[in-house]
Design a protein around this nucleic acid. Structure first.
Lengths: 149, 149
DNA sequence: TAAATATACTACTAATTTGGTAGGAATTAA
DNA sequence: TTAATTCCTACCAAATTAGTAGTATATTTA
């Protein structure tokens, strides 16, 4: 499961992506209100996103955050990895959160690891080709579909 | 990430699967030693596996556990679901651990959920077609490959 | 029948992680 | 100069995880 932090980060980035190109930065209080994310928690998350390099901030009155990467270039897999936890189901197949499996005699000969590796690859295949822009497009598609009925 | 409990359960079931058909039950102390799983923890896990219906137990001296389902019929997806946690990355796409997403205005129109749904389906596709027997076969394959070099 | 050996059961516990909150300093616009 | 905002440090409570301890109960075997 993804952490709430990760989910909030994605939602916040999506909010910023919607306003990409505009000059007005978005305040955490706005995002917090619209996306229903606890304000103080969101503040901490935004600082992380800044450190990672996804967003820029403007301090002081009329300040806020803007997305600096192009929405087509911010991939879900990268957001997950850099804000939260691993995508893999076991540490022994995780690239970024790797830990050897103490119980295994040999990782190369572990049948379970072999399957879990396959699952990871299937997940990453999807997550690493999906950008913020893709998600917004999906949202529009779903909205059209939904309002037709 | 899978819980240790789940990983241990899978390892224990694999150990039993290797002896499927034999009449001698396996003791938790044996499994614990071979698979390097803490004994007391394993005892608790075996009780769970019994409740779930995967194994049968024999009390007393010369007792232990046997697998009662055929190794071809015990699927990884089911083990994970019944011993541990969800497979999905978000509660809003989990079948067995579903929880509505408070932040979402409408689940049907959530672009993020749409992607995560796809990831879940890809994962389940693999996990639900992989049985204990499959894992053992993979292990043999890997072993051959590995010892050739 | 007694001793040895297992599972079954009940009740804790310790460490870690998660999901925050509180309060104020620094910065900027009006 | 004041109001609004990000930035920073420190803390905290609840839940979860990964176990452990101790004992009751059942079964085999000598």
């Amino acid at each position: 499961m993804l952490q709430k932090k990760t989910k909030y980060a994605i939602k916040a980035l999506l909010a910023l992506a919607k306003h990409y190109g505009e000059h007005r930065p978005l305040k955490t209080s706005e995002i917090s209100k619209n996306e229903k994310i606890p304000r103080k928690f969101l503040e901490a998350i935004m600082l992380d996103l800044k450190k990672i390099g996804y967003v820029n901030s403007q301090m002081g009155a009329r300040g806020g955050y803007v997305l600096i990467k192009h929405p087509e270039e911010v991939m879900l897999s990268n957001i997950i990895r850099s804000t939260g936890g691993p995508i893999a189901l076991l540490p022994c197949v995780s690239l970024n959160f790797y830990e050897p499996c103490k119980e295994c005699v040999s990782e190369e000969v572990c049948g379970l690891r072999d399957v879990i590796l396959e699952v990871r690859e299937a997940s990453i295949k999807i997550l690493s080709k999906t950008s913020l822009a893709d998600i917004l497009r999906r949202e529009n598609k779903l909205l059209k579909k939904h309002t037709l009925h």
